[in-house]
Design a protein around this nucleic acid. Structure first.
Length: 161
DNA sequence: GCCAACGTTGGC
DNA sequence: GCCAACGTTGGC
């Protein structure tokens, strides 16, 4: 099984939006490295951290699961879409997407600043300088540690209520 | 809003 | 195929 982190700007699409939709096509990815992950490596059943970027509380917000593996992203064929790519065609698609299903919203976001302070988290692209990938693989051990940190926060937060 | 870092484009 | 210019990303 694979482990991933998908970035999203919560103003555009947040973990709450995913919770409401339950299932969502993750489209609009227009970066070749991220595209290759979506097309070739992201599989049904893989677990995905939903990460909020470019906002007040930057960090891991929730958990999702891949429910459909890579297939062509239709928005590339739609001249009305802001993701339209005139060089792509249905015969020769350039861009791919996967569908993700909602699993969990953490009671508290695990902030990027906290992730950077976790001594066991060394390989994650987020903590490296100049990372700009919107889809990145997460090492299995690191994923487990991050998930434990998210759920520990959640447990204490819900215990306080 | 700033600015560093990165990916992409396009001229040669 | 190189590389400068440009646009975008994303944390702060």
């Amino acid at each position: 099984m694979g482990y991933w982190l998908f970035k999203s700007e919560p103003d555009a699409f947040s973990i709450d939006d995913l919770a409401a939709a339950q299932t969502e096509p993750w489209d609009g990815i227009r970066n070749y490295q991220a595209r290759n992950f979506l097309r070739d490596e992201v599989k049904v059943g893989d677990l995905v951290f939903i990460y909020h970027s470019s906002c007040k509380h930057v960090g891991i917000a929730g958990l999702a699961e891949v429910v459909k593996a890579g297939y062509p992203d239709d928005s590339q064929f739609d001249p009305e879409s802001k993701y339209y790519d005139p060089k792509a065609s249905p015969d020769n698609p350039r861009w791919y997407r996967v569908d993700v299903g909602f699993k969990q919203k953490f009671a508290q976001i695990l902030p990027l600043s906290a992730i950077k302070q976790m001594p066991d988290i060394q390989q994650l692209g987020l903590v490296k300088k100049g990372h700009r990938l919107s889809i990145m693989p997460v090492d299995e051990k690191e994923f487990a540690r991050l998930l434990a940190a998210c759920q520990a926060d959640g447990a204490s937060a819900s215990a306080e209520v």
